[in-house]
Design a protein around this nucleic acid. Sequence first.
DNA 1: TAAATTAGTCAACACTTGTTGGCAAAATTG
DNA 2: CAATTTTGCCAACAAGTGTTGACTAATTTA
Lengths: 182, 182
Amino acid sequence: MRTREAIETAAKQLFSENGYERTTVRDIGTRAGIDPSMIIRYFGSKEALFAHVATPDLRLLDLNNIDGTAIGEAIVRHFLAIWEGEQSGGGMQVLLRSAASNPEAAERMRGIFATQVLPAIARVGRPETAALRAGLVGSQLIGLAMTRYVLGLPPVVAMPVEFIVRSIGKTIQRYASLDEEM
Amino acid sequence: MRTREAIETAAKQLFSENGYERTTVRDIGTRAGIDPSMIIRYFGSKEALFAHVATPDLRLLDLNNIDGTAIGEAIVRHFLAIWEGEQSGGGMQVLLRSAASNPEAAERMRGIFATQVLPAIARVGRPETAALRAGLVGSQLIGLAMTRYVLGLPPVVAMPVEFIVRSIGKTIQRYASLDEEM
DNA sequence: TAAATTAGTCAACACTTGTTGGCAAAATTG
DNA sequence: CAATTTTGCCAACAAGTGTTGACTAATTTA
């Protein structure tokens, strides 16, 4: 039961750093300190291992008791905490790194959006506009993650957390409560 | 001289759809209607072909005569036109699709940001804050491109151009002239 | 302790990858 | 027309891919 976890953490690390295609089963085996064949025996296939490891939980329901007027900064702060937290965002980086060139990862990404982001946004404002507002929120959050954690644009990497919370939080706030200007 | 162009367009298409790693030299050859070996003879290597094809031009200098109070919507409209225009954004999609899992593509992406986005933003506002403001602008624009053209989040794909121009344009406008609230 | 199950390694498989060299056909040049 | 260069295809290469089966060592169970 110790090797199973070793494989999981090695896979998470390598998928996060290099994406699905550039990560080889042999690399994972080497980092986990076991034979590559064990990976297949434990998880069935490389794809199954990826699916098992790329299941992030944004825990947006933690924001249930925040009132609508301060939801913007709260979302951004929460989002940054997840990404900077334990094991590279609990699978978020694994997913985003691969989603651009791996159709299954992209599908999973759309699933995360539909089941985790959209419902959280639907809690505030008019339900009919929830998809649009969630789409805008998603575009800004994914852009933040891409530039800061995946592409590593120098100015975005260098930004202090509190600066991001303020500047981008204001944007999210406006997107989430866009009804007033529609 | 006809095959060279056939290879270029086939490569652009396939790199745009599948990214660098999932696109094979044999696939390109098949779509271009020639033998895979010709690709190496014309461009030297798969990497060199990618580099040759992934050189987008955002043409942000076209926005020189827009005054600072309407730069936000202008940038978004321009950005969308490039992406939706001929051959999938003139290399932008090729680059973004691969940049998440290919280090060289990511480096190229940072180059585009440094040489094309940053100078355009530096034209308005205080020069010392240009990097920060450009970083924010970049995060929103890349997020828009990712969600609409790469990941294909349904609500973002469905948004009419004019809606995007208005809602995201306002954000870009604020980011570009952020000096006033710092 | 004996039997049965689990954990692990090793070598090899079938396949795909980018790339190369040789050779025929076509086009260009003199 | 003859000579030469260009254009193209074919077959094969060396290396790397995910995956499998056989076989040993360790561990758990009875």
